[in-house]
Amino acid sequence: MSLELLLALGVGLLVGCGVWLILQPRSFPLILGLAFLSYAVNLLIFLGGRIDRLTPPLTLPGFARLADPLPQALVLTAIVIGFGMTAYLVALGLRAAAAGDDDRVDPPPGDDAP
C-alpha cells in the first residue's frame, strides 16, 4: 500500500512540476514541462497494470494468475512517440528562437502577415 501511495504522489508531483513549467512564457521551460508531463503519464499507465512483484509474466506451474504485460507495451509506445514529439518541438523552438532572437512564446504582434 505504501509503495502505491508513494508512486501516486510521484505522479502528482511530476504533473505539478510539468504544469508549472508549461505555464512559463519561454520555450525552454515549456519543453521541460512537457517532458515532465510525459514522465508522469508513462508512470500512470504503468501503474494501470497494478504493482505486482510475485506474479510471473508467463504461465509457470504453481501460479494461478499472470502479470499483465500490456501496460509495458503501451508505455513503450508512449515513450517512443513522446520522444519523437519532444525532438520535433526542440527543433521548432530552436527555429523560432533563432528567427526572433528570443525564446518567448508570446503570440506575434500582428496576425495579418500573409
Binding site: 512537457l34 508531463l37 494501470g48 501496460p71 503501451l74 512517440i81 521548432l92 523560432a96 512564446v105
Partner: peptide, 28 residues
C-alpha cells in the same frame, strides 16, 4: 508559420498527455 506552429504543437502535446492519462485510467 513557425510562430503559428509552436502553440499548436504545444497544445496538442498537452492534449496527447491527457489522452494517455485517460487511456491509463481506462485500462486500469
Amino acid at each position: 508559420a513557425v510562430e503559428a506552429a509552436l502553440p499548436y504543437v504545444v497544445l496538442n502535446l498537452v492534449g496527447s498527455a491527457l489522452f494517455l492519462v485517460a487511456l491509463g485510467l481506462l485500462y486500469g
